[in-house]
Amino acid sequence: MSEYAIELSGVGKTYPFFSLDNIDLKVPEGEIMGLIGPNGAGKSTTIRILMGLVHQDRGEVRVLGHSMPQGQVAAKWDIGFASEDMRPYEAMTLGWHMQFFRSVYANWDERYAQLLVKRFGLRTEQKIKGFSHGQRVKATLLLMLARRPKLLVLDEPTTGLDPVARHEILRELTAVMTEEGRSVLFSSHNTQDVEQISDTITFIDRGRIIDSMDKETYLDRWRRLRLEVPSGVTLPALPGIIGVRQDGRLAIATANAFQPDLANAYESTGARVHAIETMTLEEIFVANVEHSREEVEA
C-alpha cells in the first residue's frame, strides 16, 4: 500500500469556462491537509475528481492505493466524505439515516455514533428537515465519522456555521485525528478553520495549485517588512521578496522566504526598516493569491 492517502499527479479537467491545470497533490497517511482557495478556485472539482464523481481529462489519481475513478467503490469503503452541498433525506429522521448506514457498513461503530449524538446535542427521532444548518452538518459528520473511515474528505464543512458549531465540529475532527493512520483533506476558504487543525496547507487559485507546505513553514517564512524610504532611494528587487507597495516615503515589502539578511539588504540601500511583522495565514493566503495572479498576468 502507498504511503500516501491521496496522490494526484498532473491532473487536469477542462470545462468551457474553467479548467484545473496540472494538479499535483500528495497527502501522506496520518496527515491533515488544508486545501485553501477562494470561491471558484477548483477545490470542489479537485475533491470530486478524487472521489471519482468527476472524471479527470488528464493525469492520475490514487486514493488509499486505488486508481480513480475505476477503483472508487473499493476506495469509498474507507472514505468519509462530507461536503457543504450535501444533504441527508429531509423527510427522514437521523435514526433512519443511522440505520441505513449501519446496513451498509459492517464496521459501523454504534457506541461512537451514540456518543456523537450526545456530544453534538442531536435527537435521533427528529426529522432532518427540522434541523438547523449546524445540526444538519453535525448529523452528516456523525454519519461519516461513525463508520470509522481511514480517510476523511471534507469539502467546506464549516461554511455557514456559527462560531459555537464550528468549534464543536473542529474539536471533534481534532479528536478523531488522534487515531493513528487517519488522514484528512479539509477544504475551506476560511483560513482560521484550516489553520486550527491542519498539518500542511495547500493554496489553490484559478484551477492551479500555487503553494503547498507545512503550516509552520508558512508562518516562519512569510513576513511583512515596514520600511521608510528616503527620497532618492530606490528599493532593490531582492530574492525572497514577492511584492512591494510604496506610498510616498512608506513602503511595505512582503517576503515569502524571509531571512534576517533581507532587513540588512534594505538598510544598506539607505531605507530604514521600522518593523518586521509575522503574518496570519489569511494574510499569507491573500498575498500568495495576489502574487500568483500577477505572475500569470505578467
Binding site: 464523481l53 467503490v73 469509498k76 452541498d85 441527508p88 452528516t140 461519516m144
Partner: peptide, 10 residues
C-alpha cells in the same frame, strides 16, 4: 452527493 459518498459507482 450524500448517496454518492457511499461505496457505490455512478
Amino acid at each position: 452527493p450524500f448517496v454518492m459518498s457511499l461505496p457505490v459507482s455512478p
